[in-house]
């Protein structure tokens, strides 16, 4: 088990894949890090030496903001949008798409699982089961 920057423990995968377990590192950045550290991207994580691991960690920290600090930056950016009262901030707050997508249907990534809003019946009247509807 290898550790890079705090808690990340990917293993048994090629290092170019394993690095993507870090928040803020995707395919492009993984390759960039490995190439600039002079490590074969196809090499499995378990075959990496401690020296190589520390080299990877130092190149990541020198070039990118990852994990906690990155998440923090994103949330402060969003907080700024809401605090100055922008439309984008409002959309973040209510959990709807921010970039002008339609919301009549779809938009499930932002809206989460479907919440069906039924018609409210008057008090005292029990809601009939759906199977009784067609009679």
């Amino acid at each position: 088990m290898a550790r890079i920057i705090g808690v990340e423990i990917p293993d048994g995968k090629k290092s170019k894949i394993a690095l993507r377990y870090l928040y803020g590192i995707g395919p492009a950045r993984a390759l960039f890090v490995l190439n600039s550290a002079g490590i074969d991207p196809e090499k499995k994580v378990k075959d990496l030496t401690g020296e190589e691991l520390s080299k990877i960690a130092s190149t990541i920290q020198a070039n990118f903001k990852v994990e906690g600090p990155l998440k923090q930056e994103i949330s402060t950016n969003i907080r700024e949008l809401t605090s100055i009262g922008t439309y984008r901030g409002y959309r973040h707050k209510v959990g709807l798409p921010v970039r002008g997508q339609r919301t009549s249907c779809n938009a499930r990534t932002r809206k989460g699982p479907r919440k069906t809003v039924g018609v409210l019946r008057k008090k005292g009247k029990e809601r009939k089961p759906i199977s009784d509807k067609k009679e």
């Binding site: 100055i84 922008t86 439309y87 409002y90 809003v117 018609v119 409210l120 019946r121 008057k122 008090k123």
Partner: peptide, 22 residues
Amino acid sequence: EFVHTRTFRAHGAHTDKAATTT
């Protein structure tokens, strides 16, 4: 960006209103 053009009234607002008045 700072001036909204739409007003959102909650879903089911009309049914809520009907339920409370009757």
